[in-house]
Design a protein around this nucleic acid. Sequence first.
DNA 1: ATACCTGCAAAGTCTTTGCCTTAGG
DNA 2: CCTAAGGCAAAGACTTTGCAGGTAT
Lengths: 146, 146
Amino acid sequence: MQNLSVNTEEILKKCKDSGLRRTNALQVLVQTLLETNSPMTLAELTEHASLAELCDRATVFRLLQRLTDKGIVRRLGLHERAAYFTLLLPGRHQDFLICKSCGDIKPIKAACPVHNLEKEIASSTGYTNLYHELEFFGTCPQCATA
Amino acid sequence: MQNLSVNTEEILKKCKDSGLRRTNALQVLVQTLLETNSPMTLAELTEHASLAELCDRATVFRLLQRLTDKGIVRRLGLHERAAYFTLLLPGRHQDFLICKSCGDIKPIKAACPVHNLEKEIASSTGYTNLYHELEFFGTCPQCATA
DNA sequence: ATACCTGCAAAGTCTTTGCCTTAGG
DNA sequence: CCTAAGGCAAAGACTTTGCAGGTAT
């Protein structure tokens, strides 16, 4: 553990303020997430050079869980761990509004503001078959009350 | 099986054109997806009144697989079935570009065009703690070559 | 000293597959 | 008929948890 960048320290401070203990595993995990600067799976993190020998999968899992609870890390993707399927109707693109608490999914009526950006990306990156998904997450009024 | 709407028939035609056989399970699955008009999990579909007594979970799974292959259904969410985690850095919102084939994830540099819509949604739906995720999917140049 | 953290191993949950039977075209 | 589709049950893949011992504060 040397060469902690300033940002890592800032995040570790937030962790401490949230009541987490400054363990080796926590420090390295935060640093790894920060350096990679791209979403990572539990498996990728567990097998990453910096963490592989240092700690167990369950530890990484629980750290991520705590960090997510504290709002320091975000878990991407739809509700829980289930695949979602939807019909692909020509000319009918849907974006969604999802409750993080109960998992309720509603289509959004508003026009999607992303199509232009999509074209730009296609030409600047060389990706083909491009499409996008846009999801808004939050707490629905029902869950907020309960 | 009565009361098939016109749209269901249109989709079933596409299925047939793609080489799928018109089975009972297929018809009911398509109709259910169409009526629900919102992404559904395998479990939700399997337990849905219309399908529960009609066919096995493996059947629904394989139907969804075929429909996805044919481009009639889309499977939402990130690559494979693993949770992705990322640091939640204040003031640094990231959107992503993801290869459907190899799962590679890159952050996008462009400014995110969605923030205004987000505010609109917050006030029109009563959702709180709103945030969004925007992902572009496609085939990366490497995978396109291979 | 105490409450939090960790490792190990086992249990859960949802997905995926093998194999044989059934049925669409 | 011939080949795709379905049922059943078992195997996989990733996640989550219980418990006993270790460690930051």
